[in-house]
Design a protein around this nucleic acid. Structure first.
Length: 503
RNA sequence: GGUCCCAUCGUCUAGCCUGGUCUAGGACGCCGCCCUCUCACGGCGGAAACAGGGGUUCGAAUCCCCUUGGGACUACCA
């Protein structure tokens, strides 16, 4: 086996997305693992944009990928490099391949190839190219080119078994052993005419760049496993060192590979990083969660900081089995970060989500805002849940939870209770937790009921809900006047002939 | 169809390479209890897995083979 280039050199890894859509969580994990490996080893993380498919690549996509990487905190040391700006380099390499007799033109049309493939499959054979073009004499080739026939360049795979320096998907061997004849003479350029080379294709540009950029470890999704031997053959044809390869297991969703083709159709569970961000997932939670897809730090801990990840990441700790994208766990981890973030920090992050829903109260001030966010944070697992959770602090309830209305407002004596409580509240000075508790306990005692019997109707009257943070905190945040107004509104609803409006 | 990869609780996984310490550990989810003005948070406890079959061995989740299951690739995309 070829000596991997990473024997003792400093680590150089890369993330090489194609800008044909957004960065999805699978790509993010690939980027993260590369980034982590670089950080852990003190190596270099390179970003390369694989935009050789001019028909499908867009600048908007590149922008979105870069933005998502930044949001995740995956900063790169070199790049971004764009393959579309490196045509000359690939042309040079094509020339070398040609001079070395490694490539040859093949004239079959796509339709012919498709028919051959189908025939091979029907005959239960491996559908690889039959090398018909290789049997053409130089004169025949010249004649076809002169006649303006379209052709592609194919790489002539040498016979024999080759061992790709793969670290993970080895099938129990020292590397990934493949019979190069089963690879087929793969295509390295797009179709062209007139004797030139045509635009280079993925396997070629990837091999050139990985070699030229001095990549020591190619870490990418397992869907590229079968490309590794081809890229290795190419690198060897040029006389370059071959990096070591680590092919990551797939991230599955609903039993199949999670792909950007799945899109963000599912509004609750989109696959793009940017849509997750808009839903209120945190970058630290996202990084933590995707790191756990195919890797684990130890047998105990799942809540990992970026520092934990860097300090403990290792290619040896990688799992080979495909990982299922567990939404529940993602949500749990996100909630954990929301709960454990510094107070000022969480307030800053929630603010834009509130503003987007028009929930602003400049007259209350920033301290008040931070306070109410603090009150609800343990009930929210996504930043986008805050607007609904905090709505009653900004707007008096127009409706009341139906279950609560039945259970609390339709009970005998509730108006008296509410009325009495309002009266006591009105006399409570100062309006703080200590005095509030004294006041409400006094009402409970006076009525001969448990404390909850007093607290619950008040909560429903003031928030419209059955559940909320501690009642005193809510009342204080709202202020005495607002509380009294809401209680009176509730009473009038209960007494009105139309009944209480329910949600 | 061909080639290749993979296989521990429902899910993410530890353990597997270097067989015995595994009556298989943790986490999410689920259930129960506690805390409690509700919800949530938190605490405690519970149910829950080595895909099946053959070997090798004194001994296998760990090594080998087969079966089954899942997946990827099979483009003049990346």
């Amino acid at each position: 086996m070829t000596n991997p280039a990473n024997a003792s050199q400093p680590v150089r890894v890369r993330f090489a997305p194609s800008p044909t859509g957004f960065l999805h969580v699978g790509g993010a994990r690939t980027a993260l693992f590369n980034w982590l490996y670089a950080k852990k080893t003190g190596g270099t993380f390179i970003l390369r944009i694989e935009d050789t498919d001019e028909a499908r690549s867009t600048d908007a996509s590149t922008d979105q990928i870069l933005e998502s990487m930044k949001w995740l905190g995956l900063d790169w040391d070199e790049g971004p490099f764009f393959q579309s700006q490196r045509w000359d380099i690939y042309e040079e390499h094509l020339k070398k391949l040609h001079e070395g007799g490694w490539i040859y033109p093949a004239f079959e049309t796509a339709e012919e190839l498709e028919a051959m493939r189908k025939a091979a499959m029907d005959a239960k054979e491996n559908p690889i190219y039959n090398r018909a073009a290789l049997k053409l004499s130089p004169e025949e080739v010249q004649a076809k080119i002169a006649a303006g026939e379209s052709y592609v360049w194919r790489f002539k795979c040498p016979a024999g078994k080759i061992t790709v320096p793969e670290t993970l998907m080895t099938g129990g061997s020292a590397g990934n052993v493949v019979d190069s004849e089963e690879l087929g003479d793969f295509v390295v350029t797009r179709a062209t005419t007139g004797g030139g080379f045509g635009k280079p294709l993925y396997n070629l540009v990837c091999a050139v760049d990985d070699a030229l950029m001095g990549i020591t470890n190619v870490i990418r999704g397992v869907e590229h496993l079968s490309n590794a031997p081809r890229q290795m053959l190419l690198m060897q044809a040029w006389g370059y060192d071959v990096p070591s390869f680590t092919h990551l297991p797939l991230i599955m969703k609903n039993g199949k590979k999670m792909s950007k083709r799945d899109g963000d159709a599912d509004k609750l569970f989109p696959v793009s990083v940017s849509a997750r961000r808009d839903l209120g997932y945190l970058p630290e939670a996202t990084v933590n969660f995707i790191a756990l897809l195919g890797w684990s730090m130890d047998r105990e801990n799942d809540l990992l900081t970026r520092e934990d990840l860097i300090a403990n990441f290792s290619l040896d700790g990688l799992s080979k089995a495909n990982a299922n994208f567990d939404e529940d766990k993602y949500l749990y981890i996100n909630g954990w970060y929301i709960r454990n973030m510094p107070q000022a920090e969480i307030a800053e992050r929630v603010k834009p989500f509130l503003e987007k829903e028009g929930l602003v109260a400049p007259e209350r001030g920033n301290a008040w805002l931070a306070n109410i966010i603090e009150l609800e944070r343990e009930r929210c697992k996504l930043l986008s849940e805050f607007p609904e959770a905090l709505r009653y602090f900004f707007i008096a309830p127009a409706t009341y939870e139906e279950k609560g209305v039945k259970k609390l407002f339709e009970k005998d004596g509730v108006t008296e209770l509410l009325d009495r409580t309002a009266a006591i509240l009105a006399e409570t000075h100062p309006f703080d937790a200590e005095h509030l508790e004294g006041a409400l306990r006094a009402v409970a005692e006076e009525k001969g009921v448990g404390f909850g019997k007093v607290a619950q109707p008040i909560r429903l009257a003031v928030t419209g809900r059955m559940a909320s943070p501690g009642l005193f905190e809510v009342l204080i945040a709202l202020g005495k006047d607002e509380c009294l107004a809401r209680i009176r509104t509730a009473i009038s609803h209960i007494q009105s002939s139309e009944g209480v409006p329910v949600a």
